[in-house]
Amino acid sequence: MLLNDSDLQAIWLTVRLASIVTAILLVVGTPIAWWLARSRSSWKGPISATVALPLVLPPSVLGFYLLLAMGPNGPVGGLTRVLGVEPLPFTFWGLVLASVFYSLPFMVQPLQNAFEAVGNRPLEVAATLGASPLDTFFTVVLPMALPGYLTASILTFAHTVGEFGVVLMIGGNIPGVTRVASVQIYDHVEALEYAQAHHMAAVMLIFSFIVLLALYAWRPSARNLLRRG
């Protein structure tokens, strides 16, 4: 067996994390992307910049601030204390929350582009045909923006799988809880287990290549999104 139980556990945890983060971001990212695509508000610039911050910010910086926010004196930490929930740092759900912030632009930007490409006219047509705004969104906008949703989901999933810095800052390295594939590789290298590191790294490499190959083959325009991302 090329991968030991600990490796498989890390891969399973990574897939679970990436799936949950992608699902959450589909729900959270849609209204943000919709607002950014449609709004003429003066807040559009600052909000866009905030959403894009994880693209340029060192993961350790983002991780540091999230750690402070989730800590006993931070706003999120205060909230968890009031709700009687265990503190989020060094837990799986802390990792989920951090990953949602870290992968936000990978969901929002492709969706925003897709919504902008749909344009105003289909919405006007649907309205004059008796469709309410919510009806229009689900019956016209969503199907027309479907390629954007697929691109955004794939990019978000793949980006979450590849996280390292934020994971270490927020989750640490707890087997079965926060030790994801990238941290597992780091552990192997630290322990001079180069063969194990190779096997894990190869899995990551092949996974990333297949994801990108699928994306490119299916939708050439995804290249532009990747460049921008």
Binding site: R121, P122, V125, A127, T128, L129, G130, P143, M144
Partner: peptide
């Protein structure tokens, strides 16, 4: 607009590309 019962034919046909002819026609 959806409460006015005023339909519109636009300069460009503006058909919904994800629906076939029948479902485009039945949308309203």
């Amino acid at each position: 607009p959806e409460q006015r019962r005023i339909a519109m034919v636009f300069q460009q046909h503006s058909l919904f590309p994800h629906l076939n002819v029948r479902n485009n026609m039945l949308y309203g």
